[in-house]
Design a protein around this nucleic acid. Sequence first.
DNA 1: GATGAATGAGTTTTCATTCAT
DNA 2: TATGAATGAAAACTCATTCAT
Lengths: 220, 220, 220, 220
Amino acid sequence: MKSGETERFLRLAPEKKGRVLEAAIREFAEKGYAGASMNRVVGEAGISKGALFQYFGSKSGLFVYVYKMAFGLVKDYLRAVREETKEEDFFRRLERIMDAGIRFIQTQPGLARIYYHLLYTGDSPYQEEMLRELKRESHRFIRSLVEHGMDKGQVRRDLNPDTAAFMLQSVLDRFLQAHHLEITAGPLRQGMGLGETDRPNITELVALFRQGMGAPGGGT
Amino acid sequence: MKSGETERFLRLAPEKKGRVLEAAIREFAEKGYAGASMNRVVGEAGISKGALFQYFGSKSGLFVYVYKMAFGLVKDYLRAVREETKEEDFFRRLERIMDAGIRFIQTQPGLARIYYHLLYTGDSPYQEEMLRELKRESHRFIRSLVEHGMDKGQVRRDLNPDTAAFMLQSVLDRFLQAHHLEITAGPLRQGMGLGETDRPNITELVALFRQGMGAPGGGT
Amino acid sequence: MKSGETERFLRLAPEKKGRVLEAAIREFAEKGYAGASMNRVVGEAGISKGALFQYFGSKSGLFVYVYKMAFGLVKDYLRAVREETKEEDFFRRLERIMDAGIRFIQTQPGLARIYYHLLYTGDSPYQEEMLRELKRESHRFIRSLVEHGMDKGQVRRDLNPDTAAFMLQSVLDRFLQAHHLEITAGPLRQGMGLGETDRPNITELVALFRQGMGAPGGGT
Amino acid sequence: MKSGETERFLRLAPEKKGRVLEAAIREFAEKGYAGASMNRVVGEAGISKGALFQYFGSKSGLFVYVYKMAFGLVKDYLRAVREETKEEDFFRRLERIMDAGIRFIQTQPGLARIYYHLLYTGDSPYQEEMLRELKRESHRFIRSLVEHGMDKGQVRRDLNPDTAAFMLQSVLDRFLQAHHLEITAGPLRQGMGLGETDRPNITELVALFRQGMGAPGGGT
DNA sequence: GATGAATGAGTTTTCATTCAT
DNA sequence: TATGAATGAAAACTCATTCAT
């Protein structure tokens, strides 16, 4: 996953950089890797074809750049939440993270779309590598929370932190993905009763975790 | 998601049918929908271009056909496991299902690859529809198990079966996906300590579920 | 313009023959020669692909057959009008022919469409040959009327019958073509005042002919 | 009938532009719209496939461009003749216009072929729109001549100028079309007696018009 | 550095025609 | 006779990439 020579791009005027990134993000998000067209990107970004190739070398170069950027943003976001909630109870933190995730998806649907779409696009270069990296990072993130909770006596100490983290991560991811699907689906919603949704509510979910993972006397 | 007219294809000699399906599966699995090439499919299958289009009408027709087939196989497989384990304890059933999933992936890596790859390909036609259908079906499947477990007094009756099913499904899926990733990655395996794996073991995972969801006196 | 071996077709049950012809006519009329598809013809006619090729040998074979049939129909129609109006004044006959043409277009828009469309399709095999034949035949038809009118003393005898026929034929054709255009255009009609039309009325047109071509004391 | 973005084409070196146009004209003229092949056009023009599509966007874009060009040329030609003959007698002008038409066909057979062929191709995009436009323009042209002739006392004032124009236009068009057919047919000429021709001579035709339309004392 | 015209292999799809059954 | 599966050339069109200016 070599990065290519994007220095030239980084030196660009921020406004132009923004246009290029936005165009690239939208294109990859909407069409997937193989379906995306460099032609359309230059068209939307309002730059010349030559320029785009000078910045990123190739289509896959641009893709990797965009992916890394999206990945970085999500990481920053999560780190911020971790800092903010440092002092709170483990299960409360879970709730906060889920809330944050939902907010992220709602306020930045474009980026969320990248996150999910790029993530699973399947036809992207280095895709398996990326998937693995992503999983590893988020696993570490959750595990660090779990271990912190154990230290504080909020999470049962007999749990294997990896197993617990795996479980939490699975559920969180799916929860947010379901939310994302609800958002993007919008108008369809067919065959579902009113108010009915694919996704459980946060409180219930976290309560269940607390029952299964919470230390006997550790809660609120 | 109309099925097109695949009667002609179905009437084909099994050997030929097999070649075509295999080629299509491999192509879609390796390249994703947009990246797949009908030219390569006919090349690998050893049939004429015209024939493929007469069988499936279009690229998306072929894709939908392959998807439905894979979906059907997974469904059959799960139903069989459900029948087989009817008399067993809920948590034992979970284990069996996970075992079955792993066996499926190991014995039919190609189809598993479709399942995960197509599932998340993101650029496929009807993709959202498919995702939704898939989620709905597998949610129902798990929930029926949960309810059965509640009836038998093996699962806590105060749980919301939808929430519990959501959680179980999330973890199962992720577990199998992680396994699948391990399989397909094969030779790479870089950056991981020996013996280290992304995925927890079944017993531990199920034990954790039993702690959180098991009825107080219901277990073994 | 060799006819191929259509005997087999002619021996078909009239109902089937009708279906085939109707389908072919519609296809050629709507799409022109190059745009027409034998596949669609067999589809609409409900016969097998092999059969169609056995009847007509090739696409161009079918086209020529259809063309000849349409041509024959128009000829029959005109001949009938000529017989019917045998006893009438030359200029009255002209009116009757124009009326007949309009009726033909209105009652058989499909066939009229062939007549105009095939006639000028330009990409059809033997097209120039056909055009020439058509022109020759209709020239003869009109000239025979003119000569008859001269004999009866209704048309000036100093006219060159070929020249007069050429003129009449030009105007008749254009008149009917304009009418046909009006019919097929239907809904558009943009940019024209109400009631306004591209085409003059029959009476005026014929009156003008009478002035220019009528024998001094020959009229009614 | 939107024009597309042909700026890029217009900026080309004239020599190249010429090659492309010539190839396109020939292809459309010989094969009609549906039968024409972009592949053959690029082959004959000696440019790349991508280039042609960048210039004209699509096959129909190229067609419309060629059509408009041909239409423009014809218009210019007619306007020039009108100016040149401003001072002459109406019927003399008719002769001049027919002469000019014949010269046009003889000196630019390629373009004449477009004019007639495209005109009647029938399978072209926007075809009805084009036909209508063409008819409207040429009707206006002729009518303005007729009205001028009436003002000068050369044409009978009791004529309906629209009817007269319709008639003149029909005959002119057919006359030139017949001439065109003679030219293109060239070697064939089968089935016609020597010296025989489809088309009357100009003098006779115009004389006939003069008899029918000329003002009693207006001529020479 | 930036441009955008040019390339040509690639894409999906259609079609007339053949021929074994 | 009739069928319809099979063929593969050809269609329109797109694309990432290059390179002279």
